[in-house]
Design a protein around this nucleic acid. Structure first.
Length: 105
DNA sequence: TGATTGACCAACT
DNA sequence: CAGTTGGCCAATC
């Protein structure tokens, strides 16, 4: 509504199907600003305050690296969630990232 | 109110 | 090849 940016970020992030992941840049690009990927991080940071909560663990950087794991309650949370959904994670990085990569329509 | 930072990405040096 | 800078927008200090 007012915060179109965050709204879109949350909306797209919630649309990520089970066992899929996406990158900040893709979301930002889908929103309209490919360079505002930094804002995605801000949005997801507050995502836990949003209702319903946003699966921020399905959002990784361009390299498939779990850059945001540090912002989770526990650093293992993100990796465990991804593995729990079928996404293999090695060294805080998504394995076969492009394979699990999901692009917002 | 001005300056800094922030879960990024891409280009340049 | 590695480090720095620019860019985007919003929130925090």
């Amino acid at each position: 509504m007012d915060s179109n940016f965050f709204e879109k970020v949350y909306d797209v992030t919630r649309k990520i199907p089970y066992g899929k992941v996406t990158s900040y840049g893709s979301i930002a690009k889908h929103i309209g600003s490919a360079k505002s990927a930094r804002m995605i991080g801000w949005a997801l940071n507050k995502s836990e305050l949003q209702n319903p909560p946003v699966p921020a663990h399905r959002v990784v950087n361009r390299n498939g690296l779990l850059t945001g794991k540090n912002h989770f309650a526990n650093m293992n949370t993100m990796q465990e969630l991804l593995e729990s959904e079928g996404v293999k994670v090695a060294n805080n990085k998504v394995v076969h990232f492009e394979k699990h990569f999901w692009k917002p329509e």
